[in-house]
Nucleic acid binder design. Structure first.
Lengths: 187, 187, 187, 187
DNA sequence: ACGTAAGCGAGACGGTACGTCATGTCTTATA
DNA sequence: TATAAGACATGACGTACCGTCTCGCTTACGT
């Protein structure tokens, strides 16, 4: 199962090249040939190990994010404040052109390829989703609330607005948190 | 400004071909050459009038959806019920493979191209967004609630889950509505 | 039938590039990509008009040889002397590295591809063969002699020795002529 | 000098595979990878012992033809009849598709590679050439005749016509013999 | 009414990238 | 130490589209 002779040097060169090129030329102009050439690698070495350029990019992001990705969400006891902190950070990330390019490329590829989406859920989104649920749970929400739905209620508006090139501000992040926590119909 | 001699027959043939081809071969394999050939049209006729294949597709969708798109949202007085009705219909739409392919192609192109996103906001999403706000407003929500945020709170989770190839069910639609209306922190 | 829009400039550039490259890198390393790149032409333009690199080379040789190829063989009345003159010239041609490379490439391609051989017979070898027969006929050979066979008897030894990288000298050319004219069994 | 541990089984498998594959896919599509795979052998084992695929093929032909190749030419006392017999057999060989493919591959490789040509002369063509000369000598030709030239006069037309995909018949073989023996200028 | 300019279908053009194949070198594990 | 297996960098293959261009043809205007 595990390849015997696979070159780790080539693998790293390919992942680096992919990330650099997405940043430099954008995802639309990212090509296998470009990655191979930048990485000093034969095209076949890419085709041997990855089924698509999306998969390469995914692996690249995965490879670079795993160490830091394990951190839990802040828990100061003030749910609203903690969520606003996190969502504002996300807003900043989306507003950083380099991050934007990389994340958008990834998101597009996932939206296009169900297999990649599955992999994404398993390896990146799933664990993060669990951490989000854990944070909500520790806030002691009413037990009738479905935490999966709650998480999506809070995080989707940001993602959606980002994908549609809408304006992303801290104020919007705050408003989402406030509205979600309070609900639309309250007395 | 307005083209004098533009052939409406060619325009229609192109838009038809685009929609058919997205359905048949998927957006990734949609090509200008393919559209031109299917439509029995010279490539130049496409390049003359549209800047990108995304724009063609967008026009095609626009052209076909405008008549029906103008309808208002249901307003029976029961906000939760009305929203569930609408969201369930959206779920069904996303779950229909033909609709899925077309809408996904459109969404991807909008996510990729800010200009198209702008056009989308102006022509399709904006008006719909206004209708959604109007429905919420008629429900007499607390005045402190930002209706733009409220709309995104309700509609984003569906769109987001759809893009990520998550399971879309009526139950999920219902849960989103209930959770959003009630809020996470209630007594 | 005749292409309306074919670019004569591209055609010439391709034929030139082919001839230059055969001379520079040899036929084995001649590639369509190389020709296209040297000619400043898209690969498709070559594939559009020629079925193989052999066909390109053939056309190139044809294009350059047609004007001069029409000349008749010398006829001084002395058959032996005339033939020796021509065969010695052929020997010189084969011994010139540039000519050798081009002609060998052509000969190999013809030996490999029956269709090309047919074309070769029609366009280049056939007319030349007729001129050779005409020269022999004017010498007043015995009427029982098959001129086609006679021509091959005289010209094949040179070609064969050349293909097999044997030594090609004027003496050999002379000996072939003498032996062929006199015959092996004479009194 | 002699390899100590060379595997004779692999050698035979490689030569077999080469001959089979030339027959099946033709020389143009013959590849080292194909031979190795068909022979169940590592590519390196081929590269270790042969400099080119032409050399492999050459060895294969050599290996299979040496036993029978040693036979002398017929000598019934009637030179013309004996030569016709031999040349007709050659015609038949060239007209047999399996033989044609193999011999043509070999001839092309020899025409392309002077080193191989040298080897060919030493190992296959040289001995056969001597036998041809011996047969002519025994016929008591005039002493002024160069036997090397005489041999080429008789055998080249067949080979040349074959390479150029001309029609090869027994009649042609007979005509070549008659014309060569009689000579073009006779009384 | 008629020439002229536009839009049109067709498709050639110089390019880029695709995904595949074979090259010849190399490394690993087996016998 | 030769071998079977196969990864590797390289480079060519033949195909698909890109976006631009040039061809004749048709069609509608403006004189």
């Amino acid at each position: 199962m595990t390849p015997v002779q696979r070159s780790e040097a080539s693998r790293q060169a390919i992942l680096n090249a992919a990330i650099e090129l997405v940043d430099e030329v954008g995802y639309a102009k990212l090509s296998i040939e470009g990655i191979a050439s930048r990485a000093g690698v034969g095209k076949q070495t890419i085709y041997r190990w990855w089924p698509s350029k999306g998969a390469v990019l995914f692996d690249a992001v995965l490879d670079r994010s795993e160490p830091e990705g394990a951190t839990a969400l802040p828990d100061t006891g003030d749910l609203a404040a903690d969520l606003k902190l996190v969502l504002r950070a996300t807003v900043d990330e989306f507003n950083d052109p380099r991050q934007d390019r990389l994340l958008r490329a990834l998101a597009l590829e996932i939206a296009r390829d169900p297999q990649l989406a599955e992999l994404y859920r398993e390896r990146l989104d799933g664990p993060m989703h669990e951490r989000k649920k854990a944070r909500l749970k520790s806030a002691g929400l009413h037990e009738s609330i479905d935490l999966d739905v709650a998480v999506e209620l809070i995080w989707s508006p940001l993602a959606q607005r980002w994908l549609n090139h809408g304006a992303l501000t801290h104020a919007f992040a705050d408003a989402v948190v406030d509205t979600a926590l309070r609900g639309l119909q309250h007395d």
